[in-house]
């Protein structure tokens, strides 16, 4: 899976993105976020506030129940502030 991080999430984690192999029991975006938080450190810090992290699966907004697989591009970022 290709993971992408933007804005404050990118800054806290210290990476713009990374390739990961999902454990077999992770099937949705909520499970993915919990798994990343479980790495602790900067991941736990970046993803600490559930209401503050938005998820996009293959460039479309998703939610905790959105299915994810190893073939997906998943982005994690804070609420948007353009315009």
């Amino acid at each position: 899976m290709r993971l992408l991080y933007f804005a404050s999430v990118r800054q806290t984690i210290g990476l713009a993105g990374e390739d990961v192999t999902l454990p077999g029991d992770i099937v949705d975006a909520g499970g993915l976020v919990d798994w990343l938080k479980g790495r602790g450190g900067v991941y736990a810090e970046a993803l600490a506030q559930p209401g503050h992290v938005r998820i996009a699966v293959n460039q479309t907004y998703g939610h905790a129940g959105t299915p994810v697989t190893d073939d997906d591009e998943v982005a994690l970022f804070p609420p948007v502030t353009g315009g």
Binding site: P78, V80, T81
Partner: peptide, 20 residues
């Protein structure tokens, strides 16, 4: 577009910098 387009503003001022 303000609430849906994936843009983020980072501000830098003499008092410090922060994500909007």
């Amino acid at each position: 577009l303000k609430t849906k387009a994936p843009f983020w503003k980072f501000e830098e001022t003499p008092d410090g910098s922060h994500w909007v």
